[in-house]
Each structure stands twice: as C-alpha cells, then as structure tokens.
Design a binder for these strands. Sequence first.
DNA 1: GAACTTTCTCCACTGAGTGGACAAAGGCAG
DNA 2: CTGCCTTTGTCCACTCAGTGGAGAAAGTTC
Lengths: 396, 396
Amino acid sequence: MRRMTARPANTHQARLLQLLRDGGPNSRAQLGDQVDLSRSKLAVEVDRLLETGLVVADGLAASRGGRRSHNVRLNPELRFLGVDIGATSVDVAVTNAELEILGHINQPMDVREGPVAVFELVLSMAAKLRASGLAEGFDGAGIGVPGPVRFPEGVPVAPPIMPGWDGFPVREALSQDLGCPVMVDNDVNLMALGEQHAGVARTVHDFLVVKIGTGIGCGIVVGGDVYRGTTGSAGDIGHIQAVPDGRQCACGNRGCLEAHFSGAALARDATEAAEQGTSPELANRLEANGGLSAADVAAAAAAGDATALDLIREGGRSTGQVIAGLVSFFNPGLVVIGGGVTGLGHNLLAAIRTQVYRQSLPLATGNLPIVLGELGPTAGVIGAARLISDHLFSPA
Amino acid sequence: MRRMTARPANTHQARLLQLLRDGGPNSRAQLGDQVDLSRSKLAVEVDRLLETGLVVADGLAASRGGRRSHNVRLNPELRFLGVDIGATSVDVAVTNAELEILGHINQPMDVREGPVAVFELVLSMAAKLRASGLAEGFDGAGIGVPGPVRFPEGVPVAPPIMPGWDGFPVREALSQDLGCPVMVDNDVNLMALGEQHAGVARTVHDFLVVKIGTGIGCGIVVGGDVYRGTTGSAGDIGHIQAVPDGRQCACGNRGCLEAHFSGAALARDATEAAEQGTSPELANRLEANGGLSAADVAAAAAAGDATALDLIREGGRSTGQVIAGLVSFFNPGLVVIGGGVTGLGHNLLAAIRTQVYRQSLPLATGNLPIVLGELGPTAGVIGAARLISDHLFSPA
DNA sequence: GAACTTTCTCCACTGAGTGGACAAAGGCAG
DNA sequence: CTGCCTTTGTCCACTCAGTGGAGAAAGTTC
C-alpha cells in the first residue's frame, strides 16, 4: 500500500480527524453534535477527507430513531510507529490511526552505545513488526529519548546519560530511514501524553507525571499541552536536592533526588544491604541472580523483608519531599507516578502520598489524586504515537 | 464623561486595541504592517473602532516618504484603576488606556482588618485620585490580593494571611461600588503581568517572578500567559521546605522558606541579633526606631555590618535553594526577583544567583538571567491595569 | 516640476459558512 | 399495512468576511 501523505487542509478537518481518532467510527450526525458546524459544511469537509483517503466509509450506524446514517472512520490501513528509547531497553510498537497497539516488542539495550547502534536495533525491530504482517509501512513515527530534546528540530541536547547523542539529528535521520514524518520528544513527556490519551489523565488539563526509572524525570502538562521549557529541559527533577548533604551524585552535587532514589540507586542500596548482611532476603536474591534490581527489592518487600521495605519507604519519602515542593509550586490537578520502579507499587505510593500531603498546602492537596500510571510499559509508545498523530492531524 | 462600555467585536479589533495600547498612536499603514490583514479590511475595522469611541483620530503621522497618514490612538479619556493590596499597605493608581500611570498613592494598612474596611480605604483612595482631576470615572479596575484567588469568579480562597477574606466576592462587590468591570488576581501574578508589560520580561514567554515581601510567592508565566493552577494556588512557594528541620512555621511544618526568609522573618532575625548584641548597627537602629524592618537590614549591611550581611546572604541562600529546584523543574527563560525585600539589592541577588547556578543543571541555567524587577512598587498596579485591559480588549 | 512613494478609498470578486427546504430512510402506534 | 413522527443527508440561495487591484490623494526627492 502506498503510504498516506495527505494532511488536513484546515482546522475543521483536523478537529474531525482527532474526533475520529479518539472516538472511533462515527456518523456525520454524531460528528455534527461535537463540532459546531452546520450539517452542510460538515458534509463538505467529511467528503474532502474521504477524497484524501485519510477517512473511509464504514457501513451503516446503529439507528437513533430515524434514518440510519453511514459511518465514517479513519483509514484502518494507517500505521504509526511508537518508539520509546530508555536507558537500558527499547520499546517499539505499531498502532493504527486510532492509536490502538497492534504489536509491541521490547529489547534490552544500552543507550550509551550511541545513536547509530541504537537506531540499527530500532529499525530491525520495526522491520520485524512489519514482517509479521502488522504493517506494510508507516505513516508516521514518534520517538522518545531519555534526555532533553530541542523539540522543534527533534535533536537531543546535552543529555547527561546519553553521551554521543548530543546534537544527533534524530528526527532527520529516522525520517530518512523510515520514509515517513518523525517527531522526537523526551521519554517522560511521551509518557505524559500516553497517560493523557489513554490512561489516568484523560480528563485533567494540568498535571504532572513523575517517571522513576533508571533516572527520575517529570512530565508537565499545562492546559492540555506538554510544557517543555525554554531549552527543552523542563521536568528535569532528578537533580533537585532531596537530602541536604546527602549522597554524592554524578552531577557533582550532593543529595540529588536521583542519587537517593531511582532504579540505579535502589539497586545500589539493595546490594549494599545484602552485602552487609542486614537483609537475608536480598542476600539470597543477590546470590541467586548475581545482581539486584528494583524488582528484587519489590519481591523482598512483598516477602516481608524489613530492610527492603525501609529502602522503599525512604525512597518514597525523598521523592515525596521533592514532589511536595512541585505541588505547592504548580498546583496540579493530578500527579501520576510511573516508570520501572512502579513495580514497588503501593508501598512506594503510600510513602509518597504521606510526604506530599504532610508538606504541601491544604489548598493544593485538598483534592489532589496521586496515583500510579495506568498504562505501564505501553505509556511511552502510546504517547509516541499520539505525538506524531497530533502532528499529522493538524493543518499543514 | 460617560464611561466607555464598548468591547471589540472580533479578534481583529481586539488585536488592534492591544497594538495601540502597547505601541501608542499609530497610522493605519503601520498597523497594517503588524496584523496580516488587507488594507481594505483593516480600514473597515479601524472605522468601526472609531465609531465605538474606543479609538480616536490623532492628527497626522510623521511622513515615511510618501503621503502622510492620519494617526489613530486609544481614547485618551479612558481610565483604568490598578489596586495592589499587600499585607501591610495598599497601592492605588490611575492609568490611561496605554497603561501609563497618571497618579499613584500608597497607604499603610493591615489586610487582617478584613475586606470591608480595606475596600472602604481603597474606595476613598480612588475617590481622591478622581478628585485630583486625573479621572472622571473608571472604565475598568484590576485588583491584586495577597493570597490565592478563584480567578474566573474573582474570589479569594482560603488565604492564610487574610482571615475574613475567604469567599468574599471581591469582584462583584467592587464592580458594584466602582460601577465598572473588575478583575481580581493574586498580587504576585499581577507583578508578573506588570514586569511582562513594561518591565524586564517584555520579550520572554516563559518566566518566573519571585516576590519577597511580607511573605514569599511566585508568579508563573507559560507561553506568555499567567498560569494559576488547578485551584488558583500555583506559585505558593512560601511553604516549600528550604531548611530541613528548620524553624517552626505558622503553617505547622518546619523549615518553610517563608519561616526563614521574608520581610517578617528578616525583621524577626534582625531584632534577635540586635537584642543579643551581635550587631551594634542593628541595635542602634532598633533603639532609634523602636522596631526593625528589611530596610534597616539593608542600611546596616550597606554600612558594613557583618551580621546584617550574613542575614541577607543566608536568606539568599535559602531562597536560591528553592529557586534552584524550580528552575530545574520549570526551565524558565528568566527569573525576576521583586517585592519589598528588593531593597536588599545586589547582596541578595548575588547570594541567590550563586546558589541557583551551583545547584541547577547547566542546560537550565546556561543562559538564564536572574534579575531584579524593573518596576519596583509600580509593578503590581501596572499589572492590575494590564489585567483589566486584557479583559476589556478581548472580544466580549 | 517630473518622477517616484506612500497612504487611503473604492469596488468587484472569491470563498467560507449558514440555514431553510426537501428528500430519503427509518421507527412506532393503531 | 398505513400514517405520522424522527433522524439523516443533500441542495441551494444567501450572507458576510476578506482579498487584491485600480486609482486618487498627498508627500518627498532631485
């Protein structure tokens, strides 16, 4: 199939595409209820969309009491590629135009191997998905990378954990290799987009998403739009001081949140505890696996290990301490906790909540839900698909 | 003069009014250069504005090499009232439609006396300005109050330092008393609007304004618009923890920024130092004035008093510590320091800068100016006038 | 004073969008 | 089955925002 190249010609068409994306197949009449256009005008714009091939007819709709209407839907052959590059693994997924995941694969990897090696892997994963019959090609791709991005150009800038990526023209390079439009963003921002599109944040306009993985970052959504800051580094909360005169951090300061709690820090503390003999559970696991991860700490805590529980609680306290400040400052309507460490579950959530509710002002916390993300490992790729679809479903 | 009641009929007219407000008198041709409308259409809209009386003819413009053009300008008889209610004083000013201050008075007062008493004072001050011939009436008024506001309704919510104001219908009451449209906002947000309109933030889209007065607050501007948060309490940074296990704060927690540095805290610490004899300069001033304020500390520091300097430095360090976190999170293009404590000047600024540049990430601080506000005590009233003018100069 | 600029006005034309009339297609009560 | 009501879709005349060119008016420069 030849790939779609059409874009909506005006804001009406863009709006209609977004309604069809988020609401599925719809009749002209139902669309008319949502767009504040006369039926005549709406019919014209729908017809034009049908001409472009972005939208296709989809049989008769269920009757609403009168003449039955003909449904339209987004072209079911459209395919988006969502790529979520983490510090230690990549997720690649294929979605249809309604952003439903048709296929999803994950592969371990090390970002520090640099963009060339990583994109070779990404392309091979995309090829695999294509080969399995899920897609004959891609109409657009969204890419998330674990560091700040100059968004308009789609280029990583000064990413601390990604040496070799600074200034690499991700957008341009991938656009060439994939032969379709590409948008690049920070992985945490994409997670926020994902939770906004299909997760817990569907109805909220101002919210924060705190992603605790190998590092810690925060996605900021203001008025429904991702806020990226002046240089694209907004939400970089990993190096906010959580513990005065605390642990030495790689950034040169002491007591950074990331030095005290993150996938990496937790693994380090757990190993320490195991070696010092304060936790038999962790020691067993260390011996069995040859190393410890956040998952081991979660399992040990679930098994009743007091040291593991303490590590989680202490981490939650530090995180909550920082989040409390952000809540006072930003007064969000929702805080979402996500990332690899989410496996620590409600022990972590409880510690964070306690700290935030204790430290922030009542007016800001009064009606503030603090919840775990709903989408788990798919948040990033859904957000990536959403990113490129927002781009393609807006006037050229 | 009868007051203007007209509002722009469409976005073009609104745009034109804003251009005339911010750029002063202008010819149709010059306006045409800025609005992306055909000359014909532009002439029509200008004529309509002339009909409403919002805009008036203003003689011939300077020649640009051809036929001389007839200038238009905002009606010079339009008057806005800007009111900035602080914790311990009120500022009231009259501006023309171009937001130039025509008259400005300040009066000591205590917000805790409640809205009725305070508004009696405000109305008498407004009457005084009117009596002096600066205005025959007001076309709109902006009001700033030192606490969170439910913005759409113009009602203070749960203001900690303003008992008795909770839920008081400020907007409605004042609109009745003044007989003109009124908008209400947090005083810090207005300071941000002021600095954006006529101060240091004219060209920046994303910035923070930290106001250190009796308390501490922060105005947040995202994409050129003030961000107020979900419940209107965004920017309430006075109770972010700056010093772990620090001083007891009125809010119940320990180590809040406001408990360590603010007009009130500084006066308290200075008095303590004077009484303990560690600072002869401050002791002299205490004896002379019967009390100490931030201004005394500034004077003592200027006179070389080491204790006073230490107080400023320590306060700047705490403030910088908190701001550093906000900078990492928000990645602003500018940070403005303002409020009563600005009198401490460059000693304070230096301490804040040192701390922020040390603690935040290079990508966020790389090109980040941290400066003092340009407008001093007029920032609030200018912001107030700007608030109501933005409201009135937008389509009804 | 001639040639060139700039400003302003007028006007025919385009194209988006509206809303009413009407046809097509269904459900429901008797 | 037959009217009658509802919903959906199409058609069309009409309104109105906005464009862009022609040309007059009013300057400047040489």
